[in-house]
Amino acid sequence: MKIFITGGSGFIGTHLIQLLDLMGLYEIINYDLKDPKIISNAIYIKGDIRNESQVFNAMRNCDVIIHLAAIWDDFSLDESEYFSTNVDGTQSVINGAKRHHIHTFINYSSVSVYGETEEECIEKMTNLKPTNPYGKSKLMAEKLFENWYKENLNISVVHLRPSVVFGKYNYGNIYRLINQINSGFYFNIQKSKSSLKSITYVENLTNATVFLLGKIKKGIEIYNYSDTPHMNTMQISNIIEKRFGKKAGLAVPYTFAFALAIPFDLISNLTGKNIPISTMRVKKYCTQTLNNSDKIKLLGYKSVFSSIEGLEKTVDWYKTNRGSN
Results as ranks from 00 to 15, higher is better:
Ala58Met: 07
Asn86Leu: 01
Val93Lys: 03
Asn61Gly: 04
Lys46Gln: 14
Leu128His: 03
Ile38Ala: 11
Glu118Pro: 11
Ile94Gln: 06
Ser109Cys: 03
Tyr44Cys: 02
Phe105Thr: 02
Arg60Asn: 13
Asp73Tyr: 09
Ser40Leu: 02
Ser109Asn: 05
Ile38Met: 13
Lys124Leu: 13
Val111Cys: 10
Asn51Thr: 07
Val93Thr: 08
Tyr26Gln: 05
Asn30Gly: 00
Ala69Asn: 10
Leu77Met: 14
Ile71Val: 15
Asp78Ser: 12
Glu116Ala: 11
Trp72Asp: 08
His101Asn: 15
Ile45Gly: 01
Val111Asn: 07
Asn30Glu: 01
Gly24Leu: 08
Glu81Ser: 13
Phe75Thr: 14
Asp88Phe: 10
Ser112Tyr: 08
Thr126Gly: 07
Phe56Glu: 13
His100Val: 06
Ile122Gln: 05
Arg50Asn: 13
Glu79Ile: 11
Glu118Leu: 12
Asp63His: 15
Ile106Leu: 15
Tyr26Ser: 02
Leu20Ile: 02
Thr131Lys: 14
Glu52Ile: 11
Thr131Asp: 12
Val113Glu: 02
Lys37Val: 15
His100Asp: 03
Ala42Arg: 04
Gly47Gln: 08
Thr117Met: 09
Met23His: 07
Lys34Pro: 03
Phe75Gly: 12
Ile45Arg: 03
Val93Pro: 06
Ser112Arg: 06
His103Asn: 15
His67Ala: 11
Asn61Gln: 09
Asp32His: 02
Ile65Phe: 07
Thr104Val: 10
Tyr114Trp: 07
Asp35Trp: 00
Asp35Met: 13
Ile122Pro: 00
Ser110Lys: 06
Ile39Met: 09
Gly89Thr: 08
Ser84Val: 02
Pro130Ser: 07
Leu33Gly: 10
Asn51Val: 02
Ile38Leu: 10
Arg60His: 10
Leu25Pro: 00
Ile28Arg: 00
Ala69Gly: 10
Ile94Met: 05
Asn127Gln: 15
Ser110Ala: 10
Asp35Glu: 15
Ser53Lys: 15
Pro36Glu: 08
Leu68Asp: 02
Asn51His: 10
Ile39Glu: 15
Glu123Phe: 05
Ser53Glu: 13
Val113Lys: 04
Ser80Asp: 13
Ile49Pro: 00
His103Trp: 00
Trp72Asn: 13
Arg50Cys: 15
Ile106Met: 07
Leu68Arg: 02
Glu27Asn: 15
Gly47Phe: 04
Val93Glu: 08
Asp74Gln: 14
Lys98Pro: 01
Asn61Pro: 00
Ser84Glu: 14
Asn107Arg: 11
Glu118Arg: 14
Val55Trp: 03
Ile38Val: 14
Ile45Pro: 01
Gly96Lys: 00
Ile28Thr: 04
Val93Ile: 12
Asp48Trp: 05
Ile122Asn: 01
Lys129Val: 09
Phe83Asp: 06
Glu81Gly: 00
Gly47Tyr: 09
Cys62Ile: 04
Tyr82Ile: 01
Asp63Ile: 07
His101Ser: 12
Met23Ser: 12
Glu79Arg: 11
Leu22Ile: 02
Ile122Gly: 01
Asn86Thr: 09
Glu116Gly: 08
Thr126Arg: 09
Asp21Asn: 15
Glu79His: 06
Asp48Arg: 03
Leu128Thr: 09
Ala97Tyr: 01
Thr104Gln: 11
Asn57His: 12
Asp21Val: 03
Lys98Arg: 13
Asn51Ala: 05
